[in-house]
Structure formats: structure tokens, C-alpha cells
């Protein structure tokens, strides 16, 4: 079990982490969801013993990254957000190298990476720098797994990867869970949150909520409406000027909004918008997802 207690870290005057507290259970696929600059990477670097916290403690099955960093480095696998394998070494040489520094061999743990590695094996003589984005990602995951870590930490593994590779990647993660590996994954994509067992929503170094994806969505109690029509920007400004709205956010091709008190004032809004020159207004009730909950929590914290 990984337990993080009141973790704080400052860089100059910026609070990168502010009393972050949560636990990750054994064998869980745990998501850390938040926009760029929310503090995800800083959190990971502390957990991985690459950075010292200002305050707070981390315990990874009883090991403290500050004190027991040597033991921790044996049991964690890390895939940084930026591709950081040796580009001048071949696919196979990279994998062999990372296996050997953990004093193991590719053969010993091949079963773990078999599904992933088989896809890049035809290119095993190619320098890692010459791989495509999706293949680089698979190689990086293979290298992070080759010593059979107990905890796998993935920092934005799907950023900059095409949609097909992304969904493929998530199904690989589901499979890895089957080998008993605990996985912590950071992502800025809200749609990936629903694929995790539990998620922590993080914003400006603070944890907004920790729960299962369905619990998080269930936390959204207000009635939610999707509004579309006319110029998007114009519509957004008009809806915010309308006194009765609590939150208004762009969401895909429409706006998601709630009314004061969580009720339904859609008729008044429609009338108001017509006076503002928005002729074709279309308002419909929608069911919230994690992003809506995230936006709601975020605006509440900012107030």
C-alpha cells in the first residue's frame, strides 16, 4: 500500500504541492488527474525518491523514499512523461541495458512485457530515436517493466499519442493489473479517468477529491445542461452575463452549465439569450461526467 501524508513542496514562491494526502491500495490502477502544471510530476518525483519534500511523508509498503531510496528504486518502475531512453542504442540494447542494471534479464521477466514487446520486436535492431511515438511509448513501458516492479509509475504516458494507441495502452495497463502490479498513472485527459479504479483530482498542488470514477460523477448533484447555438464565444459570454447561472464551461461542441441552486431555469435563459441576439438556442439536460465534476470542484476552490 502506498500512503501519502500531507505532502508539501515549494519551488521559490510557487506551491507545487500543498498538503497532498491520499492512499493507493495494493494492485490498484490509480489515476492522478489534473491539468498541466497541477503538480503531478512533482508528486511522482517525490514518490520516486528523485526529489525531497518540504513537508509530509510517503510510505511505499513501509518504505520511505527519503530514507529507503535504495530499496524503493528496486521495486518501482518509472516511465517519465518525456521519452528518456538512449536514442542511439537499439530497441533491444535499451531493454537489455535496463534489465541488466536491475540485475535481471529480458528472458526472466519476458512474460510481463510479451504483449507489448512483441509489437516492437520487428524493429529491435532499430535505434530507439528512430521509432514512432507509439512505439517509443511501448519501448519505454517495456523498459519500466523489465525488472518486474511492484509499483509502476507512469507520468502522462499517453500525451502526444494517437487515439488508437491510447486505448491500446489502457488495455495493456488493465492486463498488467492482472500480474499484481500497482499502477499510478498521471493524465491530463478526463476521459482516461473513467478507466482507472480510483482517481485523485489535483489542481494547483491541491487534491480536490479522491474516489472511484463513478463516485466522483455521483458527487455532481446539480442539474446539468448542455447549451448550443450561434457563435460559441458570444454564447459563453451571454450565459455568464445571465444572472441565474452558477457555472458555465465550454465542453466539446456545446456549453455545460448549471443554474443557481442547482435547479432548472432553462426557459428564462432561452428568453434572455434571444434578447442578446442568439436566435437558435438549443438547451438540453445532460448527465455529468468526471470533467464536469472537476470543473465544478475547481471553481469552488477558486472562490
Amino acid at each position: 500500500m502506498i500512503s501519502i501524508q500531507s505532502l508539501s513542496k515549494k519551488f521559490d514562491k510557487i506551491r507545487a504541492l500543498d498538503r497532498v494526502t491520499f492512499t493507493v491500495n495494493e494492485g490498484e490502477l490509480f489515476g492522478v488527474i489534473g491539468p498541466d502544471g497541477a503538480g503531478k510530476s512533482t508528486l511522482f518525483r517525490i514518490v520516486l525518491s528523485l526529489l525531497l519534500p518540504d513537508e509530509g511523508t510517503v510510505s511505499i509498503w513501509g518504505l520511505d523514499p527519503v530514507r529507503d531510496y535504495r530499496a524503493i528504486r528496486k521495486i518501482v518502475g518509472y516511465m517519465p512523461g518525456k521519452f528518456s531512453l538512449y536514442e542511439d542504442l537499439t530497441v533491444e540494447e535499451n531493454l537489455r541495458f535496463f534489465a541488466s542494471v536491475f540485475e535481471t534479464s529480458i528472458e526472466e521477466n519476458y512474460y510481463l512485457i510479451k504483449d507489448i514487446y512483441q509489437q516492437i520486436e520487428p524493429f529491435r535492431k532499430r535505434p530507439a530515436g528512430k521509432l514512432s511515438g507509439g512505439m517509443k511509448q511501448k519501448l519505454a513501458l517495456s523498459c519500466a517493466l523489465i525488472h518486474k516492479p511492484r509499483l509502476l509509475v507512469l507520468d502522462e504516458p499517453t500525451t502526444g499519442v494517437d487515439a488508437v494507441s491510447r486505448s491500446e495502452f489502457w488495455s495493456i495497463l488493465q492486463k498488467l493489473k492482472g500480474f499484481g502490479i500497482t499502477i499510478i498513472v498521471a493524465t491530463p485527459y478526463m476521459d482516461e479517468a473513467s478507466l482507472c479504479d480510483r482517481v485523485a483530482l489535483i489542481q494547483k498542488g491541491r487534491i480536490l477529491d479522491v474516489a472511484t470514477p463513478s463516485e466522483i460523477v455521483a458527487g455532481f448533484k446539480d442539474k446539468l445542461f448542455g447549451v448550443s447555438g450561434g457563435n460559441m464565444h458570444h454564447l459563453l459570454l451571454a450565459c455568464r452575463q445571465f444572472g441565474g447561472t452558477a457555472t458555465v464551461f465550454p465542453f466539446g461542441e456545446e456549453l455545460h452549465l448549471t443554474f443557481n441552486g442547482g435547479g432548472d431555469s432553462s426557459e428564462e435563459l432561452e428568453k434572455y439569450l434571444k434578447t442578446k441576439g442568439v436566435e437558435e438556442v438549443f438547451i438540453r439536460p445532460v448527465s455529468p461526467d468526471i470533467e464536469d465534476r472537476f470543473m465544478a470542484l475547481m471553481s469552488r476552490h477558486q472562490e
Partner: peptide, 13 residues
């Protein structure tokens, strides 16, 4: 520059 040092730092080396 390549960031490989990060990857080495999380190994027992």
C-alpha cells in the same frame, strides 16, 4: 539533455 539521467536515477545504480 536527453533526460536519460532521470531514468538511471530511479534504478538501483
Amino acid at each position: 539533455e536527453m533526460g536519460t539521467i532521470e531514468q538511471i536515477n530511479v534504478t538501483p545504480v
